[in-house]
Simulated scan of single mutants.
Amino acid sequence: MFNSINRFFSRLFRKRNDGLNFNRRRKKVDFGKIRYILVFVLELMAVIALAYGVVIAFGKQVECSNSSMEPTYKTSDKLLVNTITYKLSSPENGDIIAFKPKSNVNASYSVKRVIAVPGDTIYINNGRIYLNDELYKENLDVERIENAGIAATPITLLDDQYFVLGDNRNSSEDSRFESVGFVSSEDILGKIWMKYPF
């Protein structure tokens, strides 16, 4: 019995000595594992940043709040906006844009089609649009315009003025009326590129 107690204490004492032994070999740092973890973390951060950038650039969502864009888009359709394209180029005839009417930051975004761009002369006669003294050719079937508004006489757009119309021409509040007027580039959120869900 005395021997077993003695062995117990000698083992205990040896373990304590091992724990206090400063001359034992230190474990080597595995730089391969550290490099792997760092590369993984950096790749993960890059993927998150890229996903965030894509959502910001192409995933901004607006709602078509009324019937002014029928039949292209219906009331309450969710639309995705490309917010990058007009930082690289300017709106063109036929583009559908989301914008704040009259720089009203409290208003919801309005969705309309660009008909005329800076430098163009536009007027509406006998229910039809004339752009630079030529009949405006459209890729969709639209009804004749009953109210020409301010476009009853020719208007030449100045720098940074865009003339927009809804596709549902007789049920649209657009550039023909003072409440919307001409749209400037600083009021444009971006170009509508897709309806959501797809």
Rank of each mutant, 00 (worst) to 15 (best):
D120W: 04
V114H: 04
N126A: 13
N132L: 09
Y123I: 07
A98E: 08
N106W: 03
S103N: 15
R113P: 08
K102P: 10
A98C: 11
S110L: 15
R113Q: 10
Y109W: 12
I115T: 10
N125A: 14
I115E: 03
I96V: 15
S110H: 06
I96Y: 03
R128P: 00
A98L: 02
N125S: 15
N106D: 15
K112F: 05
R113A: 01
T121R: 07
P118L: 10
K100V: 05
I97E: 00
V114S: 00
I96M: 06
V111H: 05
V105R: 15
K112R: 15
G127F: 06
P118Y: 09
I122Y: 07
P118T: 00
R113V: 08
N132M: 02
V114Y: 00
A116C: 08
R128F: 09
N126F: 07
D120R: 03
S103P: 02
P101T: 00
N132H: 09
Y109C: 08
N106V: 05
L131G: 07
N132T: 12
N126D: 15
T121Q: 12
Y109N: 13
V117M: 06
N132V: 11
N132R: 08
R128G: 03
R113S: 07
K112Q: 05
I122M: 11
A107M: 02
P101K: 01
K100M: 13
K102V: 12
N125W: 13
I129D: 01
A116G: 12
S103C: 02
A107R: 03
V105G: 13
N106Y: 12
N104R: 06
I96D: 02
G127W: 05
I122S: 12
D120L: 05
P101G: 00
P101C: 04
A107W: 01
Y123S: 10
G127P: 06
Y130V: 14
S108Y: 06
L131P: 08
K100A: 12
L131Y: 07
N126E: 15
N132A: 11
I115G: 04
S110A: 15
G127V: 08
Y123N: 14
V114K: 00
Y123D: 07
Y109E: 02
I124F: 11
I124E: 04
N106P: 05
A107V: 07
A116M: 02
A107I: 01
K102S: 14
S108P: 13
V117N: 04
I124W: 06
S108R: 08
I129N: 04
A98T: 07
G127Q: 10
Y130Q: 12
A116I: 11
S108E: 14
P101E: 01
G127E: 05
I97K: 02
F99E: 02
D95W: 07
T121W: 00
P101L: 00
V117Y: 03
I97S: 00
G119A: 09
S108W: 02
D120K: 04
S103R: 03
